[in-house]
Write a protein that binds this DNA or RNA. Sequence first.
DNA 1: CATCACGGTATCCTTTTCGACACTATGTGC
DNA 2: GCACATAGTGTCGAAAAGGATACCGTGATG
Lengths: 118, 118
Amino acid sequence: MADPAHKDAPCMPCSVEATLNLIDGKWKIVILYKLLKGTLRFNEIRRLLPGVTQRMLTNQLRELEADGLITRTVYAQVPPRVEYNLSELGRSLEPILMAMKAWGDANLNRSLPAAEAA
Amino acid sequence: MADPAHKDAPCMPCSVEATLNLIDGKWKIVILYKLLKGTLRFNEIRRLLPGVTQRMLTNQLRELEADGLITRTVYAQVPPRVEYNLSELGRSLEPILMAMKAWGDANLNRSLPAAEAA
DNA sequence: CATCACGGTATCCTTTTCGACACTATGTGC
DNA sequence: GCACATAGTGTCGAAAAGGATACCGTGATG
């Protein structure tokens, strides 16, 4: 049964899978994508992502920070000001993010997905 | 007007998000990645992904099929034979998959290319 | 006859995820 | 005095994702 083409590895380290684990939150990719364009504050991100709750946003942001993908800068001002930026590592995800955007634009931008054909 | 760079849209169609929705299963990306190399049968995939159960695999495969990313070919043989392939659409995800692999290799491959079981 | 392999299904259960809502602290505006 | 805005935190509970296990039909194998 030897099938050399498929013998790459029964259980490779799976960089793909590992990468996936860093960005498995539904919002993470989008957050990173938005952050690609520059610094954003907490509420700016929130307004950019309708449907996300503070709790979720905080959570995702914290995980991204813990994974070293973004940086969080707190200014000790009276109306609290917190700025989020991509880290070097986060910025290096740009090819992936852009590839996703390009794919989405090319493949499901035709007429907007929402097809519920049951 | 501050920052035109951020004025892209408060709620763009989000190709990124939409793309993400197609591949949000933990195993989907990996399945697609494996399938890049060619046709695989059900149990071949299963063996390639230790830790996935039949139920999960079936599930993910069905979703991928429903999303038009893979094709499923059933041969009416006595030991049932089912082959999975990437569709055109699925194959067009290659840049994303490869970008993920490249990123993973570059950023978290520091010391784990062992994993040679069997 | 019993078992195995194939490609699943079905059922049950645990874990994780996610949403809603309330609460904090503080300086400003009304 | 009160509400508002910022940037969160905490708790509760529902929903979903995912895992474990058992079962199916059949034909070849032992």
